[in-house]
Simulated assay, not measured.
Amino acid sequence: MSGQAAIFILLGACAGGFVNGLAGTGTALFALGFFLVALDPVSAVAVVSLMSVVTGLQGLWEVRSALKVDVPRLARFTVPGLVGVPVGISLLGAIDADMLKLLVAALLILYGGFFSFRADLPKFERRTPLLDSAIGLVSGVLGGMASLSGALPTIWCSMRPWPKRETRAVLQPFNVTVLSATTAMLWWRGAYDGPTITAFLIALPAAMLAAQIGLLVFRRLRDDTFRRLLIGLALFLGVGIALRAAV
């Protein structure tokens, strides 16, 4: 591997690790652009998936007490999400992935753009167990079809007036669970060859350190500020997905 490729891998690891530590989601959007310069698409996705899982464990430890607050709520997202991943993979040949990405991007841009410039945050307070499960299932399907598992949970959780640690206690384990399933499937398909593992080992220390810096910033955020961060991230995700799908 050339020195230039290693530099791009380190830059992607720093960017992806930081946003993972800060928000618990959005890692792929910030890291993939750098990784794709140095790696082929399959290897880049494989490195991002595994890196997201490993760095995500630090975020889980950060909100370990909040994970116990509402275990059934977390299960309503993660269990259907796991079911949705293989469904999404099975639908890969039947659906235009680029068109799907553009539709999801439009939703993210409309939501993120609308609430980013409003003084009042959205407040959806009542319990919605069926909707939570539907969001988890559809997000798992989107993850399997187009690597978009984090889009809908980001929107949904930013609408709920939960404390930031409870919000993260849904987003982080959901992402770690779905990406663990994705990583396992990529491993089964032989994506983790020698060069991919080498790239991951180069990325890992930088990603872990950057995630710790992101966590330091997360600890200083107020609950409302964290919700605004998620809304802004939704807008950023939408623009990034749209640009990639359009190219």
Results as ranks from 00 to 15, higher is better:
28 A>P: 01
79 V>S: 01
148 L>S: 00
86 P>G: 04
221 L>R: 08
188 W>N: 14
215 L>Y: 04
106 A>Q: 08
157 C>N: 12
157 C>K: 04
151 A>F: 02
148 L>R: 01
186 L>H: 11
223 D>S: 09
144 G>T: 12
68 K>N: 03
107 L>S: 12
16 G>Y: 00
165 R>M: 12
212 Q>D: 06
200 F>Y: 13
67 L>F: 06
210 A>L: 04
213 I>T: 12
184 A>Y: 10
106 A>S: 11
25 T>A: 13
49 S>L: 14
5 A>K: 07
169 A>F: 02
236 F>T: 14
104 V>C: 06
22 L>R: 09
2 S>G: 02
6 A>Q: 08
214 G>P: 04
245 A>L: 13
187 W>T: 13
246 A>P: 02
67 L>Y: 03
174 F>E: 03
91 L>H: 11
11 L>D: 12
3 G>D: 14
131 L>T: 14
123 K>L: 03
86 P>I: 09
26 G>E: 10
27 T>M: 15
211 A>F: 01
31 A>Q: 02
47 V>R: 10
13 A>R: 07
102 L>Y: 02
211 A>T: 15
238 G>M: 04
65 S>L: 13
58 Q>P: 07
199 A>N: 06
10 L>S: 14
154 T>I: 02
245 A>R: 07
128 T>G: 05
15 A>D: 09
31 A>F: 03
51 M>K: 05
90 S>Q: 15
132 D>I: 06
118 R>N: 01
42 V>H: 02
94 A>P: 03
206 A>G: 14
101 K>V: 11
60 L>D: 00
169 A>C: 07
62 E>W: 04
239 V>C: 03
59 G>L: 13
236 F>P: 02
71 V>S: 14
159 M>W: 05
47 V>I: 10
18 F>Q: 13
104 V>A: 05
112 G>C: 11
66 A>V: 02
16 G>V: 01
128 T>F: 12
39 L>H: 06
27 T>V: 13
89 I>C: 11
72 P>R: 05
161 P>T: 08
153 P>W: 02
39 L>K: 03
153 P>E: 02
74 L>W: 04
167 T>S: 11
158 S>Y: 12
146 A>R: 05
236 F>S: 09
79 V>M: 08
149 S>E: 06
237 L>I: 08
107 L>M: 15
106 A>H: 08
179 L>V: 15
83 V>D: 11
129 P>H: 08
9 I>E: 05
140 G>M: 01
33 G>T: 00
84 G>M: 03
5 A>D: 09
233 L>I: 08
94 A>W: 13
52 S>D: 04
55 T>C: 09
37 V>P: 01
87 V>R: 15
45 V>M: 15
132 D>Y: 07
230 L>P: 00
105 A>E: 07
42 V>I: 14
102 L>W: 01
11 L>S: 13
81 G>I: 06
44 A>N: 08
144 G>F: 06
52 S>R: 05
153 P>R: 05
103 L>I: 07
139 S>C: 03
193 D>N: 09
235 L>I: 09
184 A>G: 13
108 L>Q: 12
198 T>C: 10
164 K>V: 04
223 D>M: 07
229 L>D: 09
59 G>W: 10
2 S>T: 14
193 D>Y: 07
92 L>T: 07
25 T>E: 13
71 V>R: 15
217 V>M: 05
135 I>D: 01
190 G>C: 07
188 W>V: 14
